[in-house]
Design a protein around this nucleic acid. Structure first.
Lengths: 194, 194
DNA sequence: TTCTTTTCTTGTCATATGCCAAGATTTGTT
DNA sequence: AACAAATCTTGGCATATGACAAGAAAAGAA
């Protein structure tokens, strides 16, 4: 835990005193997930969240017809968390799955609570993360209404190139709110423009 | 501030001690907004949030083509807040406008911070509200992908009847991600089914 | 390397919803 | 009450995207 890892990029000395870092960081446990492994499954309650050290992760929901809809993708330095389940202590509607072998840093709810209520900087940082997630979710949601599928795809490519390149087309398509067929055509169109 | 109002439904004696309530509640200032008045406008930073005592309020974003897209509707006992702007202290992309004359209880950022960091129950309650908003936003967002416009409208009607009845068709339509024309046809269809 | 399975592409056709424009209706104003 | 403005409905047509199915390509397993 004292070697350099992604946690040091997340909990910086700008936001936390050394003393606080010494309290916070040792609580994170290194966790490895194999490709295909689930970090969280529908119906369970999220008792942990993670920061990604390496690898790709996807969260998705399954709708009434059994279609799976990607809700997010995660990679290095991202926080992987089901906010509602983790904080409301309710069973989740989401699945979180490793797309590749992954290394993560895990924190459990109880420890989180203890840090949250005892360290002001920790709760400010946590709140910021949640608000940032909210903001991005709203942007995505509004984009589903105002933008064409192609624009949404182009934005994903420009903002998360590694996702667009490494994740299966069908999983990206459902995130964009379209079918894999449509995304395939959109990709073709873009390729032909160049 | 000691008479019964909606704040007593929001800050209950189950979640807060009497002493805490005595500290918290007097910080809320009664605010009246006239129909059409803006609580927040694009470009400004949110320095307040409100609980609605009475009336209807709408938040909306304006996209690049100048179309306005409803992002939410608020009524009695709802919290009216632009989470990202309020917490990140950044200028907002949203507008919040009174659809009818409204009475609200207002809290400013500084006071919020002070309460948040000093009263554990207050921060638990605040976090819950944010998480709940997140959850609802995700549900709406997923619904835009998995459900037909008609289903989305029916759900809105069943969950927020007073909104569907009191808000202009065009504003509801943009919330549902469709045009006013389409919503008008959907309404007709539903009416004909009965 | 070969075989199997999964993923991606492409064609054809269907459909939900958008766009535009004209009336009808409702609401607000003088 | 009368007019103006905003909102809602309806028609005709356009289009983005979906559904289904078949083959091509890529990835994984033996």
């Amino acid at each position: 835990m004292n070697d350099k890892n992604v946690l040091h990029k997340i909990f910086t000395e700008k936001e936390f005193s050394q003393k606080e870092l010494d309290i916070i960081l040792p609580n994170f446990k290194k966790k490895e997930f194999l490709k295909g492994e689930y970090l969280l499954q529908e119906g369970k309650t999220a008792n942990f969240y993670w920061f990604v050290e390496s690898g790709f992760i996807r969260s998705f929901a399954v709708d009434t017809e059994g279609n799976d809809v990607s809700t997010n993708f995660y990679t290095e330095a991202d926080i992987v968390i089901d906010w509602p389940s983790f904080f409301m202590r309710t069973s989740t509607k989401e699945n979180i799955q490793a797309l590749t072998d992954c290394t993560c840093w895990q924190l459990d709810f109880e420890t989180f609570q203890q840090l949250f209520h005892s360290i002001e900087a920790f709760r400010e940082a946590g709140r910021s993360r949640l608000v940032k997630s909210y903001f991005e979710l709203k942007r995505h949601s509004t984009s589903l209404i105002t933008d064409q599928a192609k624009e949404r795809y182009l934005r994903l490519v420009s903002e998360k190139k590694h996702i667009a390149q490494n994740v299966a087309l069908k999983q990206i398509a459902s995130y964009l709110g379209i079918t894999d067929t449509s995304l395939s055509r959109i990709r073709k169109e873009i390729a032909e423009e160049k």
